[in-house]
């Protein structure tokens, strides 16, 4: 059995997979316990983290999570609408440069954009939303452009030979035919968005959110709390990732990647 585990491309059954994952988790936890034993430890002990978790819960963790998710959802919807319109029109030669330009803008630093946004919008919450929208859109546009670029010429030619007009091709091959990729683009960029979200929340303290909690914990240098929060943020991110994956698989049977 062990020999199998160390052979490239070997297929193993679910039980063995679970065993391997279990061993890794045990190793990580074991190391954690061991590393936090002494008096001068780098990591907080599991007990401290558990305490941190409880104090967070008492401070309204659930409400903060709700606030963060709400912000994330709002920004994601707006920015998807914007990015999709720009990208779906990019096959028109006249509008192509617009999409490419926005995709390049992702190299701009966050501060530059927030500076101009503060002059345009008022209200911290609106500001949070738009900072996120701008950032998300730049990444969405980049990824969606890559999806479009990867559509084989044969697929376009197939539609052309079926007497599709150019607009019908856009509708059938690009828009309908790649709808599942849009969900995946969202999922692929989720990590960066989720990270940005917490940062934006901690810079622009408005309606609470996980970012605010991080900032507060930072102030008191409470290690247990910080690690507890990190774990929570990580788990929520993974949960969102998994939900998007399930939705894509459920809605699009032909989506096999």
């Amino acid at each position: 059995m062990l020999k199998k585990w160390f052979r490239p491309f070997e297929k193993i059954d679910l039980k063995q997979k679970m065993t391997i994952i279990g061993i890794w988790i045990a190793l990580v936890l074991g190391y954690w316990f061991y590393a936090s034993l002494g008096s001068k430890h780098l990591f907080p002990t599991p007990a401290q983290v558990w305490e941190g978790m409880q104090s967070l819960y008492n401070e309204g963790l659930v409400v903060h999570i709700g606030s963060s998710l709400g912000l994330c959802l709002q920004a994601a919807v707006i920015s998807l609408l914007i990015s999709l319109s720009i990208v779906y029109l990019s096959p028109l030669p006249a509008l192509k440069p617009v999409a490419v330009f926005f995709s390049r803008l992702r190299y701009l630093p966050l501060t530059g954009i927030t500076f101009y946004l503060t002059m345009l919008v008022s209200g911290a919450r609106t500001m949070q939303v738009w900072v996120l929208v701008v950032f998300m859109s730049l990444y969405f546009i980049t990824s969606l452009l890559a999806v479009l670029k990867d559509i084989p010429a044969d697929e376009i030619n197939h539609a052309r030979s079926l007497k599709c007009s150019r607009w019908e091709i856009l509708w059938e091959v690009i828009i309908k035919g790649r709808l599942d990729y849009v969900l995946d683009v969202l999922r692929q960029n989720l990590a960066i968005i989720w990270m940005m979200l917490v940062t934006v929340e901690s810079i622009l303290v408005a309606a609470g959110g996980l970012g605010v909690l991080i900032k507060n914990s930072d102030k008191f240098a409470n290690h247990g709390r910080i690690v507890a929060l990190q774990i929570i943020i990580l788990l929520i991110g993974l949960l969102l990732d998994w939900i998007l994956h399930v939705i894509r698989k459920g809605l699009f049977r032909y989506s096999t990647y």
Binding site: A159, S161, G177, D180
Partner: peptide, 17 residues
Amino acid sequence: QEGDVGFVDQKYTLFRH
């Protein structure tokens, strides 16, 4: 012009959706 002549390509491309 495109669409005047039906074409089945060598890879049997179809609408994936």
